[in-house]
Structure formats: structure tokens, C-alpha cells
């Protein structure tokens, strides 16, 4: 085992995220929203979902960005806006150490978001999970099936208006 250490401390810095955002903004202009520079989780939103895979690939491969690590992809329900969405936490692991979050939204009924499973393998199962829980489609996903619930489960459990089914294969579900 080697003793040397690389990298060192990489404190979360909103400035770093803002600088990274500027590079994306320069390239994609109106396809991304303004930067939300809050201290907890600085993020921007992709306004044109169809451009999301291009943005993702750009963010992963651009020499100044190198977001090579997707920490998390969470599905979110926005019942007030009639929208579903995903929140991706990206990080440049071991290279720059900067972090940023990206939001993509789609409509609540029949919403489609292009997949980024080809950009980060992490997204593959997370998108399946988001589909399982919220029901948005990920176009171009290699294997979009339910992952946690059974294949024949009814409804999407994490939607705010979810009602649990009475029985599953003859077994009573509620207490």
C-alpha cells in the first residue's frame, strides 16, 4: 500500500460551480437557465430537455469541466407546476473537485427526458428508479423497466397523489 496522498481537501465552493456554469452557458446559451448560487446546492436548470444529453456529454468531456462522476440522480415531483423532474449532482472527481447540480423537468403526464445512461453509467439504474417511482419516460434508455417494485405494480409510489393498491396477487396490501 502506498502512503502518498493526492488531491487534498476540496471545499465546496459556489464560485467554482459558477465558473463551471459559465462555460456551459457560453456553449449552450438559452438552453440553460440562470445560475442559482445558493450555498447548499448550487444548480442550474436545463430549459430544453432535448439538449440535456449534449450538455451532459459536454460537461463530462470539456477540459475545463470534466464532470466525470455522477453522485446522485433523484426524481422529483412538482405537483404545483404539473411537472416531474430529475436533479443530478455532478462532480469532477479527482480532477478539479468542483460540484454542481443540474435540474431537468418534463410534464407530469407522458413526460419524456432523454437518457444520459450512455454518459454516466450511474444514471442507468437511477433513471430506472426514477421511472419506477415517478413514471417519467427516459427516451433512449437501454433497459427501461421497473427496478424496485414488481413489474406489474400499479401506479408510481412517490408521486404526491399516489394511492396504494388494495391487493397484489391476492395478498392484501394495506395494514
Amino acid at each position: 500500500m502506498s502512503d502518498f496522498e493526492i488531491g487534498g481537501a476540496a471545499p465546496q465552493s459556489v464560485q467554482q460551480a459558477a465558473a463551471a456554469y459559465e462555460v456551459v452557458r457560453e456553449m449552450f446559451g438559452g438552453a440553460v437557465s440562470d445560475f442559482d448560487a445558493n450555498e447548499f446546492m448550487p444548480f442550474f436548470e436545463v430549459l430544453e430537455p432535448e439538449k440535456w444529453p449534449d450538455i451532459a456529454l459536454f460537461m463530462r468531456d470539456h477540459p475545463k469541466l470534466k464532470f466525470n462522476y455522477m453522485a446522485c440522480l433523484s426524481g422529483v415531483d412538482y405537483p404545483d407546476d404539473e411537472k416531474l423532474g430529475i436533479v443530478c449532482n455532478l462532480e469532477s472527481l479527482g480532477i478539479f473537485g468542483h460540484r454542481i447540480a443540474v435540474k431537468v423537468k418534463c410534464s407530469r403526464e407522458g413526460g419524456v427526458i432523454p437518457t444520459v445512461a450512455y454518459v454516466w453509467h450511474t444514471a442507468n439504474w437511477h433513471e430506472r428508479e426514477a421511472y419506477d417511482m415517478f413514471g417519467m419516460q427516459f427516451s433512449g434508455h437501454p433497459d427501461l423497466r421497473r427496478i424496485l417494485c414488481p413489474e406489474d405494480w400499479e401506479g408510481f409510489p412517490l408521486r404526491k397523489d399516489y394511492k396504494v393498491q388494495e391487493s397484489y396477487h391476492g395478498i392484501k396490501v394495506p395494514y
Binding site: 409510489p157 392484501k172 395494514y175
Partner: peptide, 12 residues
């Protein structure tokens, strides 16, 4: 209460 996917007792 909220575990939609949990069987409430294996004796079912």
C-alpha cells in the same frame, strides 16, 4: 403504515 410494498405480517 406507509410501507406500500411491505407485507404486513408474514402470517398473511
Amino acid at each position: 403504515e406507509h410501507g406500500y410494498h411491505v407485507l404486513k405480517g408474514v402470517d398473511r
